[in-house]
Amino acid sequence: MSSKLCIGGIVEPGSTVINKTGSWRTFKPIYHHEKCIKCGICELSCPESCIIKTEDGYYEIDYDYCKGCGICSNECPRETIEMVLEEK
């Protein structure tokens, strides 16, 4: 946030990224890549856009933003993603 307010409250694009919503999480999704068929459903189904395709074609989670909703785990056709209670 700049020190001076912009007239009319205009805001810069994509600036919510400073808000690390990973702190909301209770359950943490963990990949078991041996079962993964690289279908990409998890990536598509993530409301936080925080599942990222890696160079080897698998997927990883940006835990800075993952709220632990579990849609990825629920939608995965191969039970690749396990939801684990997160100890903080």
């Binding site: 307010l5 007239i7 009319g8 409250g9 205009i10 805001v11 810069e12 694009p13």
Partner: peptide
Amino acid sequence: NPKTFGAFADPSIYSEFRYM
């Protein structure tokens, strides 16, 4: 040059916009 118009303001910032 994509800007956001019409964000909402919480109590910490509302009066300043009125003052402006």
